[in-house]
Design a protein around this nucleic acid. Structure first.
Lengths: 212, 212
DNA sequence: AAATAATTTAAACACTCGTTTAAATTAAAC
DNA sequence: GTTTAATTTAAACGAGTGTTTAAATTATTT
């Protein structure tokens, strides 16, 4: 079965890169299989359909990231002092950067896939994530809410989605923005530098008092 | 020429609604023309191509919104007291809501189109907006920068793009989020309520001190 | 009213898409 | 080594896409 998993992996590797770059519906199976140097029909043979391939691509990252992320959050919860919001957000940086060890550019690819998925799939991805990784999400949401107890739950719902938009849009266009920043300001940032820039922005927005 | 502009308008009206709901590439010309009750070929006759139709749909809003928005910013600039960041952002609310007078649901449609456009078209929309409406954008960026002089230009560049992501992602999925908020918290927000929720978030993020 | 221009229409074109089929090939089991 | 199962392959299918064409219709101009 060496060839089987080899073909599956080649498909997943090619697909995630193309999905992140061009979006799901803009990426044809023919483009994926030609980049992966496998036969067109092997996608349907190994994954059943394009939709299931998309889910497999996302799951490969979520299965690694989600447990690592909620581990970090749980560690903060058991610490003697209550974690600040910025500490909670910063605790996700390592799990995110560890995805680069999984595959080259993994951090950026994962965040771009997340963004594309949330926008393209009319709610399907939201359902997929909440049903498969809901426990991990709940731990994170609870920790964030506890760090900003002055924010009502409904308001926090909106602010966490504002935050999702911030991170996801930023990462989807991080490469282009880095080019502009380099040309305009002489800055040369990598993905980690951008993540560390965005955390104070998000933390301030999430915790700003209501009606001020 | 009554029929000519009538057909053009019918196409634009049907297209913008479908584009906002399903995205550009997910909306076929056949769906647009059947909703508009015009012939399929009339899109190419009146607009040349689907890509030019998309631009026409966006331009119909941008031509109204952009001058109105920079008018508001200029009025703040001539006021006796320096405008706060939240005042600057809030000054865009009226121009946004005035789009509802243009067409039913205009505000929501415009913001969703903006979000879809920025995400779907790999940089094409960014180029289209900066080249056609760059002067209006510059006035806005200058006003925001002046309201937060403690933020270096390079940092402000990043934060304004964080903000673009926040607003664009939120609006692209505003309907879905509103449905969830209604089901989960009994909240029934319209587009104005969401806009007024996101402004404090963005203002706090843009102006938070660096390295804090 | 006749001639010209603008618009609408139905049909077809050329292409891409995801998926399926059945035969060929390779691997595993007995 | 033969049989059985798993995988790969080339080809085709049916449906959907944006666009083009040329004739029919409508509006405008002379």
């Amino acid at each position: 079965m060496a060839s089987r998993s080899d073909t599956k992996t080649r498909i997943l590797d090619a697909a995630e890169k193309l999905f992140a770059e061009r979006g799901f519906s803009e990426t044809s199976l023919r483009l994926i299989t030609s980049k992966a140097e496998v036969n067109l029909a092997s996608v349907n043979y190994h994954f059943g359909s394009k939709k299931e391939l998309i889910r497999a691509v996302l799951a490969r990252y979520l299965d690694v990231f989600m447990p690592a992320a909620s581990n970090q959050v749980n560690q903060l919860n058991t610490a003697p002092t209550k974690a600040t919001l910025e500490e909670i957000l910063s605790s996700l940086v390592d799990p995110l950067l560890d995805l680069n060890a999984l595959r080259a550019g993994g951090t950026s690819i994962f965040l771009q896939l997340l963004g594309r998925g949330y926008i393209e799939s009319q709610g399907h991805l939201r359902w997929f994530i909440t049903t498969h990784y809901g426990q991990h999400l709940d731990a994170f949401i609870k920790a964030v809410s506890a760090s900003a107890p002055h924010i009502p739950p409904a308001e926090m719902f909106w602010r966490l989605h504002f935050t999702l938009g911030t991170i996801v849009f930023t990462m989807a266009s991080a490469d282009a923005l880095n080019d502009i920043a380099a040309a305009e300001f002489g800055e040369h940032n990598d993905i980690e530098a951008v993540i560390r820039k965005v955390i104070p922005y998000m933390a301030a927005g999430i915790s700003v008092p209501v009606n001020s």
